[in-house]
Amino acid sequence: MHRSLFNILSGRNTRQGLWGLPLLVALLISLWLTVETTQFATAENLFNLVAQAMPLIIAAIGQLVVVLIGGLDLSVGSVISFTTAVLALDQPAIVLIPAVFVLAALIGLINGLAITRFNVHPIIATLSTQYIVLGITRILRPVSGGTVPEIVIDAVSGSFLGIPYPVFWGIIVILAAWKLLYGSRYGLHLFAIGGGISSGAESAARNFGVSDRRNIILAYVVCSCFAAVAGVFLAGRIVSGDPNVGLLFELDTVTAVALGGTQLSGGIGSLHGTVIGALVMALLANGMNLANVSPFVQTAIKGGILLAVVGLQSRKKMGL
């Protein structure tokens, strides 16, 4: 079972995809920022970086689950905005927090059902729910405002033993996702279904007794729930509901997932790759902010990275 460094870097012959290269990129950016600026390598900035990267890390892990089965969830950004808007509804936290997850699961369920039962293309299904959820969010909260429950704010702004809470959020979410993807039967089924779909044998998993429909529906539910966690985190950070906070977030998650070496055609990808991908995005944003790059240019650069990482993936299928 010898695996050379080259194989890890190129992601050849693995189910994990190419994740060594983005790690190298992340290290290079950190090194450059450490040398170029005095503010970067301080504990304060690094903790800040973790807090900034956390919503993207959480939502990207959700996106990964869907991408592994060869799907794509474009409603992630809307679910995040929707979550912050619901949390700012001025009701007790004991009602709002469960409500947020029930509603997110419901959105995921609609996506999953439309895709599996009604044969709708994942991109079209999730694009529709993106608009529907965005519309509902704008009705709930036309402009940003309101206050989220105290407990949500406390959960992201405090610190324990000198380590800020966002770090613990990251550890818990990553551990949960690790258990889901690598420590459960469901995770194995996800890779099996995705591997079949990406190689053109869509019923391969079903033939071996893996229920693809139910697992695919569940993947969209999981993705929406992760987006809701990201939304709760963001709501705690901005303290209010904001209908635009999740705008274009779904594309950032796709970029992070693809940057982490996960194949968008399904079946190949890894949790650590996705986390590294999200970190690279956060480091870039941090670096560009320190270098005073215009926010408009930052958007354009993010689009360019998305185009580049997805353009470098080869696949058989043409079109969507």
Binding site: T299, A300, G304, L307
Partner: peptide, 19 residues
């Protein structure tokens, strides 16, 4: 290049809008 059409055209749009 056989890149996903949604991703390519969305990315192109984002780049142009940002520009």
């Amino acid at each position: 290049r056989r890149v996903s059409a949604v991703i390519v055209t969305l990315a192109v749009s984002i780049i142009l809008v940002g520009l």
